[in-house]
Amino acid sequence: MPGAGELRALRRRIRSVKSTQKITRAMELIAASRINKARLAVESARPYAEMITTVIRDLAASGEVADHPLLAPHEQVRRVGIVVVSSDRGLAGAYNTNVLRRAERVAVSERDAGREVTVYALGRKADGYFRYRGQDIAETWTGIADRPRYRDAQEVGRTVMDDYREGRIDRVWLAYTDFKSALTQVSAVVQLLPVDARELEGGEAYPAQFLFEPAPDAILEQLIPRYVEQRVFAGLLEGAASEHASRQRAMKAATDNASDIIDDLTREANRARQAAITTEISEIVGGAEAMSS
């Protein structure tokens, strides 16, 4: 029967597109539920971030900043570290591409200025991207980008702070994706180390009768590392929320696209079926006429 083979092929394609659509829809729904959790995590971390910044600024305004090793720029900047927040898994639209390109631009401009660059990769995607390009990678962390915890940020923060203190690197950038809204995520680069003195401006000096225990400079000594850890944490949280938002959008587009393809294929299949029936009828009619004449 003519057209039957074509019809079978079309039906097979429809089935295959439908099963792909089931997967993309599931991924879309999972991502959507994770966005809310990730946004909540961003919100929950904000009070601590604001308060530690206020305390440090107030101490700085009291003239206590002095020469903390994490605040003082190194005299010569020979080697620069870039902490890159990416995801472990793909299928997240342009999420990884955007932040990796941004980090790459920083690396290029540092290299053009005659400095060495090393990467601290967060997420398998950053590791793969820079490893493929022969970029030196100081350390890679996987399994935390999806749902970052503070202790993960602590570990990353401590690693770069140690490397900075011991002079293995002279400057650290943090490249991440800022979660502006469910629709807008923008890649961003901030200087992590040395802590930019401008960030610590605008505080209110502590009045003279204030009691410090231990001395203010000792308190600041302990506060600065926590401030750096908290900034890494904020970058991780923003990145995670952006990753899920990006994946949801990408998977929604894929699901919609699958629907369009299914519609087109179904139409084609119907046409093929109709053509097959028409052929069959004309054959029967033709056969009947041949017998009656």
Binding site: L59, Y206, L211, F212, E213, P216, I219
Partner: peptide, 19 residues
């Protein structure tokens, strides 16, 4: 508890910053 020992703070306490 500060590094020096237990501390209790009531409203009106002297301004303080402690580890």
């Amino acid at each position: 508890r500060s590094l020096d020992g237990e501390i209790g703070i009531l409203p009106g306490h002297q301004p303080i910053l402690l580890a």
